[in-house]
């Protein structure tokens, strides 16, 4: 079997999912696709279990907040195939007001903490996650601090004026 490349990967994905995969690109040789949240679990499962692809290593799950877009939260998955030494990035844009997406813990146990972190900072509900608690912030926090509307520092603080720091 010859080496798996981005071209063959894209052909295989096109053959399997056709137009359900959108906006493919290849920034710095890393094949990137966009899918909807209805398809994400199917795509992930196919990538993981297909004997030719074997994307068996979940590197990272994270999210990005784009307040100016209609679908304002992008959940980003980075997968890695230890067998083929190839990577893929999958983006899913979801509604920022009601962010919900199926969980990947059914495929990888490692997704557990990554999704907890994403929930903690962006408020993304991972449907079916076994233990979706906050992980780095305190349990009774109400905001989701990595969203853009959340300020870096409390603007009402009186002890951190610029002139104290010579700014």
């Amino acid at each position: 079997m010859d080496k798996l490349t981005n071209n063959r990967l894209s052909e295989q994905l096109q053959a399997r999912f056709a137009e359900r995969i959108k906006n493919t690109s290849e920034p710095y040789g890393l094949y990137t696709i966009e899918v909807t949240k209805e398809d994400i679990l199917e795509v992930l499962e196919y990538l993981k279990t297909d004997p030719q692809l074997q994307f068996n290593y979940l590197t990272d799950i994270t999210a990005v907040h784009y307040p100016e877009q209609a679908l304002s939260i992008a959940v980003v998955y980075h997968l890695h195939s230890l067998v083929n030494n190839l990577r893929i990035r999958i983006k899913v844009y979801i509604d920022g007001n009601y962010p919900a997406i199926p969980t990947a813990t059914v495929l990888w146990n490692g997704a557990n903490w990554m999704e907890r972190e994403t929930y903690d900072f962006f408020g993304v509900q991972f449907i079916g996650h076994p233990d979706l608690r906050r992980i780095l912030n305190v349990d009774d926090m109400e905001a989701f601090p990595m969203r853009k509307e959340f300020p870096l520092e409390d603007p009402n603080r009186v002890d951190k004026k610029d002139y104290f720091f010579g700014r």
Partner: peptide
């Protein structure tokens, strides 16, 4: 923005 009761936190408690 929704703030649902965190079911997992309840389960943990």
């Amino acid at each position: 923005m929704i703030f649902p009761v965190n079911a997992a936190l309840e389960r943990y408690r």
